[in-house]
């Protein structure tokens, strides 16, 4: 039986805009096990990054409700000093943009070393340097002794992202949160970085939350996938099920709108309307309903819930049973690649 590492229950993260609170993450429940990659997929503004930041406790001015339990202990609202003992030691985060995630005025060695220094006070300066150099080696940076004394602007984007990863894994965290770790990188570098993250997972037996908008990356990396739309998880399943039998209308639409390098499509599916902004989120009913007006309103639930369709496969709202693509676009349904 897989060992539960992170369990989120009914998490709601709201931001104050003027005099009202708006939930960027709403009613999110999920689990991450050891040695497992859970991918969270969605478009910009769906709340996937807000979710990652909530887990790490990086929102300084947000209201958080619900439960995030890490190794059985709730970490919502715990004291900053307790949180700081977990962050960087038990959980690490890889940021999206390697150009901005490093302090421009600090040497690479010091930036990685800081993660060690904060959680392992016994290490001497030389021991710390040795360990940083080992880490640089581990993430595949050539000439680590030299890079140790360099500044971020002297490294390429791919190398900087390796430094960010080295920092995140410095203390071998049990949980690694990767927020679009390869979005800013070229495709050959992306494949190297993804391999690196996979290897690290095997090495350290860690659980990984991989935030991405790239379905290819999901297919390559994930064990399980959660699809987010407008602050909520709309579907969650293991990766093969999700790619072969997607159920939620949003998931299916998303799959059909991606141009695919492996097979030819005449026309891409277009999701009607636009992603609602935080202040314009539909607060009641099925949040995706406004974007499929050809589906009868009766199909939706009044308070959409997650339904377990098969063991481990959850879908929000019962509208999936009635969903079909609009007539005029004559699109074939996507059945994954068989």
């Amino acid at each position: 039986m897989a060992e539960k590492l992170l369990e989120i229950k009914n998490l709601k993260t709201s931001f104050r805009i003027k005099d009202d609170y708006f939930a960027a993450v709403d009613d999110v429940s999920l689990t991450v096990n050891k040695n497992e990659v859970l991918a969270i997929v969605g478009e910009s503004g769906c709340g996937k990054s807000a979710l990652a930041f909530s887990i790490m406790g990086l929102h300084t001015r947000a209201k958080m409700e619900g439960n995030i339990s890490f190794k059985g202990e709730n970490i919502v609202g715990i004291s900053p000093s307790k949180l700081n003992k977990l962050r960087g030691k038990n959980m690490g985060m890889i940021f999206q943009d390697p150009l901005t995630a490093l302090n421009p005025l600090m040497e690479i060695g010091d930036q990685i070393g800081e993660a060690l220094l904060l959680h392992n006070k016994e290490l001497s300066k030389t021991q710390r340097k040795e360990k940083v150099i080992k880490l640089l080696n581990k993430v595949g940076i050539p000439r680590p002794e030299y890079v140790y004394e360099q500044f971020p602007h002297e490294l390429s984007g791919g190398m900087r992202q390796r430094v960010v990863i080295a920092t995140a894994i410095a203390n071998e965290p049990e949980l690694l949160i990767a927020d679009e770790p390869t979005t800013a990188l070229d495709v050959t570098i992306q494949s190297q970085i993804l391999d690196l993250i996979k290897d690290l997972k095997e090495d350290m037996d860690s659980g990984i939350v991989l935030i991405t908008h790239d379905l290819g990356v999901v297919a390559e990396m994930a064990d399980r996938v959660a699809v987010m739309y407008a602050g909520q998880i709309v579907e969650i399943a293991d990766v093969t099920t999700l790619f072969e039998e997607p159920l939620h209308p949003y998931t299916r639409s998303l799959f059909n709108s991606v141009p695919n390098a492996k097979e030819a499509q005449d026309r891409l599916h277009v999701i009607q309307g636009i992603v609602p902004s935080l202040q314009n989120l539909p607060r009641i009913g099925c949040r995706f309903a406004p974007r499929m007006p050809w589906i009868d309103g009766e199909a939706h639930e009044e308070h959409p819930e997650m339904h377990e369709v098969k063991p481990g496969h959850y879908v929000r709202c019962s509208c999936y049973k009635h969903f079909h693509f609009p007539e005029e676009s004559k699109e074939e349904e996507h059945h994954g690649v068989s």
Binding site: V187, T188, Q190, S191, L194, D195, D214, L215, G216, V217, A219, E220, A222, V239, T240, F243, V258, N260, A261, K262, G336, V337
Partner: peptide, 29 residues
Amino acid sequence: IFENPQHIYTKRLVAAIPDIDPRKREEMK
């Protein structure tokens, strides 16, 4: 270019595209 790349650079570039089929993971690797 996509089915029959001849230059080693193109081959590597095309191979690096993540495959959309999770079942082909090992094969791709």
